[in-house]
Design a protein around this nucleic acid. Structure first.
Length: 210
DNA sequence: AGCCAGGCTACCG
DNA sequence: CGGTAGCATGGC
């Protein structure tokens, strides 16, 4: 689908680089045009945790949960595992679904530790409780810099509103089918995958304002 | 005062 | 397979 590449350039021109994924230690959180992050295992884990905490949740609330974990010194796999379930739930309460997300974080933490820095296969991520396709691909793309295009609810809306697909089609196509469309339309490279996904979210938010 | 937010699981036909 | 209830808090 050729229109996909055109849309990318259009959105990039209109909004500029978005600098995803946000990190707590950066005052502005976002880091446009800096594709060197994450640089440490700590930052990598923070991205993974954020990907879980933001499931069906506004980023602002996910960020509060991350800050809650950070403030209590729980933002690491070891500390998450050592802390009690209740302490984790309490720290992440603002992000909602706190009981489920506490379990997801702790199960992911065990998995993360066993990786010892290696990049997980997508199938391994998907086999974890609480990690679906979008969360897995967000982790791979932003935390591990693997070229996997992330599809979310916004993607479908923008495709339809930009006239690239009939609304019924945008809805009917599976996650993997949509992902393939984007991955075939773009150069197989991490920065454009990161930017395009973030730009689609940006666009969808602008759209929602009216 | 509802509706929605950077989903996923479990269970249904 | 596709469709849907349940999970929960905070912003608008």
């Amino acid at each position: 689908m050729k229109g996909l590449l055109k849309l990318y350039h259009k959105l990039l021109k209109e909004y500029g680089p978005q600098g995803w994924w946000p990190l707590l230690r950066l005052p502005a959180r976002y880091h446009p045009s800096d594709y060197s992050l994450p640089r440490t295992s700590k930052e990598r884990f923070e991205i993974c945790a954020g990907a879980i905490l933001t499931q069906n949740t506004a980023w602002k609330n996910a960020e509060r949960a991350l800050e809650g974990l950070s403030k209590k010194g729980l933002l690491s796999p070891e500390r998450l595992l050592r802390a009690g379930r209740e302490a984790v739930e309490e720290a992440i309460r603002p992000s909602g679904y706190y009981a489920q997300k506490a379990r997801k974080l702790r199960e992911f933490a065990r998995f993360y530790k066993e990786l010892r820095g290696r990049t997980p296969p997508r199938e391994a991520l998907l086999s974890l409780w609480g990690i679906g396709p979008e969360t897995a691909d967000s982790i791979l793309l932003y935390a591990y810099k693997e070229p996997r295009f992330v599809i979310d609810a916004y993607t479908r809306r923008v495709l339809a509103s930009e006239g690239l697909l009939p609304p019924a089609e945008a809805k009917r196509l599976s996650y993997e089918e949509l992902q393939l469309l984007f991955e075939e339309a773009l150069p197989r490279s991490v920065p454009p995958y990161q930017e395009y996904h973030a730009l689609l979210v940006r666009r969808a938010k602008e759209l929602a304002k009216r």
